[in-house]
């Protein structure tokens, strides 16, 4: 389960391609793919190994002027799904 202090990094072997407003993310080891909308693509871009999940949520909340609690919930669910698919790696911060 993700924690807010976890640092997220996109899997190094991901291959992405922007296509008509969507981001296609291919996971070569699994032969699977994920299609992200603009917000999802932004989360993936922010998961660069320097930001915690909380910082990613805060950044998006500020960018879109949205309610932080609502954004946090959405980001948590979305990040969790990408972790389960192998698109995001997690570094636990003690």
């Amino acid at each position: 389960m993700l924690n807010w202090d976890d640092v997220l990094t996109a899997a190094p072997t991901l291959v992405t391609r922007e296509s008509d407003g969507e981001l296609v993310v291919v996971l070569p080891e699994q032969g699977k793919f994920v299609v992200l909308n603009a917000t999802g693509a932004r989360v993936l871009a922010l998961a660069d190994g320097t930001r915690t999940l909380r910082e990613i949520a805060d950044t998006l909340s500020a960018k879109f002027g949205a309610e932080p609690v609502q954004v946090a919930g959405d980001v948590l669910r979305f990040a969790q799904s990408l972790v389960e698919r192998g698109a995001l790696h997690v570094r636990k911060v003690m």
Partner: peptide, 12 residues
């Protein structure tokens, strides 16, 4: 089918 979805499906 959206372009992104199609691309992902075809590559897979």
């Amino acid at each position: 089918l959206s372009a992104g979805r199609a691309l992902g499906e075809l590559v897979a």
